[in-house]
Design a binder for these strands. Structure first.
Lengths: 168, 168
DNA sequence: ATTTAATTTCAATAATTATTGAAAGTTTAA
DNA sequence: TTAAACTTTCAATAATTATTGAAATTAAAT
């Protein structure tokens, strides 16, 4: 397979995957494009490569920067901005897990906490079914949270370990 | 808080969470409704509780059954069908992880495998950037797959362990 | 200070996805 | 076998979400 075609297929598949997981397809495609780019790309180049408008490009690049998956790169002597993606895939996964937890799971857990104490007859079947299910989900979320923290801490250690090595 | 209101809030939040993760809001709401119901519910009751049409109810209940998150229950002497959700939350999580892996991640991994061998100059920067990123994602997916299998196997063991106990 | 280049915003519009509801199909009971 | 109860399907429509593109804004160069 030719490189250019392979890139297109990768971008396409990453876009499909993103949209199945609640991430806007264009955002996922820009991410994919930057993931396999050898050098940082300008807004123009992204527009061109994906056949999308300037506005769309701008919106989604900013969203990717919000997620810390993409960074702005300033090139000396160039007026326009360039963008590059975080390429360490383990780091990418960590960021995504952390951000989704923060944005989507945490609000749910907050609601679950509020739903723990219900007025009325505790021995009622309806009441029991509710508190048991909600209680279990809440406990499960707590466990999942711990596991995720462990993963993220391990990742941070790894990162700082490598980073600090530079100064030894 | 009153039980009925708590149920509504739970259903609402579960629906929002679902839609953020690429699951149709109604499907998530029906799931939530069945998760906190003390007894299996009929299509009528689901329609009523969520103010949705018969067609919508039917479609989404069937989808939930496809996912093995909901089962049909036949009640003696009743002509209509009832539905109940799997309530063991750890099992629910396992099912969701497994199904999403199968439906969404596996196809991506298949594509990644095909993209490993690219024609042309291997020493080219563009070429290197591509194969390195794609290769890393592929390896990462392999690792993730192993971890998930481990979790699912542990879960199966747990399940069969409990199940077999019944015959001892 | 003015021009030029680039970025950002957002109302209008397009594209996608979800929902309805009535007709067709199926199953059960009499 | 017929009628009633219930389920399924799917074309039409509604609701949501994404995208465009041109105007406004900001930043850089002359």
């Amino acid at each position: 397979m030719k490189l250019e075609q392979a890139k297109l297929e990768f971008i396409q598949s990453w876009g499909v995957l993103g949209s199945q997981w609640g991430i806007n397809r264009t955002m996922a495609q820009i991410h994919a494009l930057l993931l396999v780019a050898a050098v940082p790309l300008s807004a123009e180049e992204i527009m061109e490569a994906l056949s999308i408008s300037r506005g769309n490009t701008n919106m989604n690049v900013r969203e990717l920067m919000d997620w810390n998956l993409v960074q702005k790169v300033i090139v000396a002597g160039e007026r326009k901005e360039f963008f590059k993606a975080e390429k360490d895939i383990w780091k990418v996964a960590t960021i995504i897990m952390y951000e989704r937890k923060k944005r989507e799971l945490d609000p749910m857990v907050k609601v679950l906490a509020q739903l723990q104490n219900i007025e009325g007859d505790t021995s009622n079947d309806e009441h029991k079914a509710f508190t048991e299910t909600v209680g279990n989900i809440y406990k499960f979320a707590g466990q999942a949270e711990k596991s995720l923290s462990t993963i993220i801490k391990a990742e941070e250690n790894w990162f700082w370990g490598h980073f600090l090595k530079l100064f030894k």
